[in-house]
């Protein structure tokens, strides 16, 4: 993907109010792949007894990375929407650590984009969560 396009997509994602509220940072984007980081923040804690980040925040991180991956795919253009997302939570994220989502849009048809995404903390060998999703593809204009 060309530089100016990348920055446009990046600016679009970073302008999403919920992405801003979560402090999401795009680390890589292009060719159907996206890497987005969510810093640890106490307001995102889902279980006060442990300080573990809420699953919902991790879901939003993974959904954002997935949508960004679709938008950056050469065969998909424009805005996308989630049709379906299936999330597996493998283990609690370690409190205090940022969570990184890596999404790959692995197949695109005229109407649908298929994505898989993994979320990890600093222990990258043991992902925190994984998801697969189907996203809308707008017709080329």
């Amino acid at each position: 993907m060309a530089g100016p396009e990348l920055s446009a997509a990046q600016a679009f994602i970073m302008a999403l109010p919920q992405a801003q509220a979560l402090g999401l940072q795009i680390e890589a984007l292009g060719d159907g792949r996206a890497e987005i980081v969510m810093p640890y923040h106490p307001q995102l804690i889902g279980d006060p007894a442990t300080g573990v980040i809420a699953g919902g925040a991790v879901s939003t991180l993974m959904d954002t990375a997935s949508g960004a991956a679709v938008m950056s795919h050469p065969q998909a253009s424009g805005v996308t929407a989630t049709l379906d997302l299936r999330i597996d939570y493998m283990r609690p994220a370690t409190p205090g650590q940022a969570i990184r989502a890596r999404a790959e849009c692995h197949h695109v048809t005229r109407s649908v984009a298929f994505v898989r995404v993994t979320a990890s903390d600093e222990d990258e060998a043991r992902p925190v969560a994984m998801a697969t999703g189907a996203f809308t593809v707008e017709g080329k204009k």
């Binding site: 992405a19 919902g56 925040a57 879901s59 939003t60 991180l61």
Partner: peptide, 8 residues
Amino acid sequence: HGGVTAAF
């Protein structure tokens, strides 16, 4: 946001 819907 679709993620917010999932969280909800």
